[in-house]
Every structure is written in C-alpha cells, then in structure tokens.
Simulated scan of single mutants.
Amino acid sequence: MKITDIKIGQISVPLKTPFKTALRTVNSVEDIIVEVHTDTGNIGFGEAPPTGVITGDTKGAIIGAIEEHIKKNIIGMDIENFEEIMIKLDKSLIKNTSAKAAIDIALHDLYGQLYNAPLYKLLGGYRKEITTDITISVNDPEEMAKDSLDAIKRGYTTLKIKVGKNALLDIERMKAIRKAVGYDVKLRIDANQGWKPKEAVQTLRKMEDEGLQIEFVEQPVAAHDIEGLKFVTDNVSIPVLADESVFSPEDALTILQRRAADLINIKLMKTGGLHNALKICSLAEIYGVECMIGCMLEAKVSVNAAVHLAAAKSIITKIDLDGPVLCSEDPVEGGAIFNEYKITLNDEPGLGIRKINGTKYLNY
C-alpha cells in the first residue's frame, strides 16, 4: 500500500451557538481536510483546524507545510514502513503540529485499513465506548447557568466551564452554575491561560471556600510559565491540568519531572498527531499521572482519531471530545457515533470514515 498522492480541501461547518473562551470567539468550524491516496485505492482521511491563538497554525501555514514540505518526503513510501514514515513526517519541518497531525491521522487511518482492523484495537483496545463532557462558553453568569441546565437535560453529567475573563466574575459564574445544576454534576473549569499565578491561586481558593467542588482547573496561567503553573499546583487543593503547556513528549516530561501539574491534556493538534500522543501516554503511565484527551474546535475526522486513542488507552481517564456535537451538522459519513455525551466506536478498518461531504478541494 504505497502513498501516491495527498489531496487538500476545506470544510465549513456552522456551530449551533458561538464558542467563547478567554482567547477567542468562533462561529463556525473552518478546517483543512487531507486525503492520503494509495496505489491500492485505499484513502486515509485527516483534518486540521487553523487555531492560531493556540498552535500558531493558520490555514495558509497548514496548506503550505503539507504542499511544500511534507508531500515530497512521504509520497512513494509504503504504509508497511510505518515507523519510517512517521520519522520522515516529523522531520519534514519543525513545529507546524496541526499540518503534521492531519497527515499523521490519515496515515493511521491507512494503517488500520492495511491490517483490516479498527485503529483503537491496534493501539490497545481498552474499551469501545467513552463518555465526553461538554463545554459551556464564557458569558454572563445567568446565561452560563442556563446553558449548563440545557446540557444536563441532554444527558451530560460533566461540564467544562470556560473562565479566565475577569477573575471576580469567574467566581460568580461558577456560583451561579453550581446553584443551578446541584452537586450531582461534575464541574471542571478551563481558564485558557487567562489568570496570573497569584490571581489563579486567590481565585481557586475562593472557589474552594465557596464549596463549589471543582473537579480540576485547566491551564490557569500562560503556557510558557511553567514556574507559575507549578506555583498554582503547589498552592491549591483543586487539581491542575496542563494543556497549552504541553505540545510535545518533551514538554510532558518537563511537566511530569517538575510536578508542575496534576494531570496532562493531550490534543492531537498540539502533539502533531497520534504518534507523539502515544509517547505522552507512555510517559504518563510511567509517572502515574492520568491524562485527558481534548480537541480544538474540530469536526468529526480528527476528533474521531482522538476517540480511537481514548478508547485504546486506560491512562486516558477524562474525555473532552465535544467538538462534533457543538456543530450544527456532520459532514462525515462513517466513523465513531457521537450521540451527545456517548461516543461509540464501530469495528470498521482504520477510522471507519467513508466520505466527507462538502469538501472544497484546492485547485492545483
């Protein structure tokens, strides 16, 4: 099964409601789609969202990385030589993790097809069904409480609340939500780098004093501020999850060795795909630190790959893969079944994706 071509396209999928964090507001998923074609007729699908404020990868950068660097390095290679392909992909250029992730996902799709097995079984096969949280965008406290109640009615038992915009108001947001949903629902919060270290400690301690029962806080401080992250971890009872601070296995190792966080968040667009994500899983297993699997605002192709990883590995204990259910439509035929909070895998080879509707291919 030799790689003969890589086609690039774009999809546009409106969101049900605007997605608001401390970093940005988004109204639709505007992602790059890749198809890796082979001489056997098999096609591997991948996807990359241009998330400049987090990964630094824009739409043009993703396309340029694939067209000008990655293509020439892997076309002609055989999927059987998988490790060699992964090495060449990684060495094609530095950073550009979203472009690498899109290709990595498509290659793993083909790897599963080569051996006629669903990817999650090849990676570990720990389970076939997972349960995700759902994100509540940052808004006024009353609106966030209303959105939280709506999510509960749809069956969600874990909510990820976006904060990080005005610490004092963040406390009021969480008080309003906890009052609305009661204490049978898990609340986790994501500050998206929105606080300073001392501000984070003060805010989280206040939340502790209010008895808000926060499951964990995600990335309370700037991504580069590992000392600040450790300061927060050492000074609050609420567990701290490192997200934007962890792109590579090397980043994960630094966090683990310095005990700068209690948990690690794996996102394929940060790691450059499944190949490096699996290395982070192995490191986390060694240190006994649980992981969450998350996503950017992505459609079902790349999130589907993350689902396979989550289903494969027991070290991934927390799931934040709500991207597809935030979309107003699903352009993907095949793949995992997203039924609100419940995500179920099938036993089709690879990622099980048959077609992506609405793809607008680039003109060559």
Rank of each mutant, 00 (worst) to 15 (best):
residue 284 A to T: 12
residue 14 P to I: 04
residue 320 D to H: 11
residue 182 G to Y: 13
residue 209 D to T: 10
residue 201 V to A: 06
residue 145 A to V: 06
residue 229 L to S: 14
residue 165 K to S: 12
residue 152 I to T: 05
residue 245 S to V: 04
residue 324 P to A: 14
residue 278 L to K: 15
residue 246 V to K: 13
residue 210 E to G: 12
residue 223 A to G: 11
residue 239 P to Q: 04
residue 265 N to E: 07
residue 246 V to Q: 08
residue 261 A to Q: 01
residue 254 T to P: 00
residue 153 K to V: 04
residue 170 D to N: 05
residue 319 I to Y: 01
residue 77 M to D: 13
residue 7 K to I: 07
residue 348 E to K: 13
residue 47 E to S: 06
residue 218 E to Q: 13
residue 255 I to E: 01
residue 283 L to D: 01
residue 302 S to C: 03
residue 188 R to W: 02
residue 344 T to K: 15
residue 329 E to T: 14
residue 82 F to R: 05
residue 281 C to S: 11
residue 4 T to D: 09
residue 281 C to R: 05
residue 191 A to N: 00
residue 13 V to W: 04
residue 25 T to L: 07
residue 9 G to R: 04
residue 357 N to T: 03
residue 324 P to V: 10
residue 276 N to P: 06
residue 94 I to Q: 14
residue 215 E to S: 07
residue 281 C to D: 03
residue 341 Y to G: 02
residue 23 L to N: 06
residue 42 N to G: 02
residue 118 P to N: 10
residue 231 F to C: 11
residue 107 L to V: 10
residue 44 G to L: 03
residue 55 T to I: 09
residue 171 I to P: 00
residue 289 V to Q: 14
residue 23 L to A: 02
residue 279 K to C: 05
residue 202 Q to G: 02
residue 59 K to F: 14
residue 325 V to S: 01
residue 234 D to L: 09
residue 204 L to C: 02
residue 17 T to C: 06
residue 116 N to V: 10
residue 340 E to C: 07
residue 328 S to Y: 01
residue 67 E to F: 03
residue 35 E to C: 14
residue 234 D to R: 15
residue 133 D to F: 01
residue 104 D to S: 08
residue 276 N to V: 03
residue 157 T to R: 14
residue 261 A to T: 10
residue 54 I to V: 15
residue 282 S to V: 10
residue 170 D to A: 03
residue 142 E to F: 13
residue 83 E to W: 07
residue 295 C to K: 05
residue 193 Q to W: 02
residue 270 K to V: 05
residue 185 V to N: 09
residue 310 A to V: 09
residue 342 K to Q: 06
residue 114 L to K: 03
residue 97 T to A: 13
residue 319 I to W: 02
residue 43 I to L: 13
residue 213 Q to R: 14
residue 135 T to I: 15
residue 169 L to K: 15
residue 211 G to Q: 10
residue 95 K to W: 10
residue 156 Y to E: 04
residue 117 A to C: 11
residue 261 A to Y: 03
residue 6 I to C: 03
residue 307 V to W: 11
residue 159 L to D: 01
residue 358 G to Y: 02
residue 336 A to N: 12
residue 225 D to I: 08
residue 268 L to K: 09
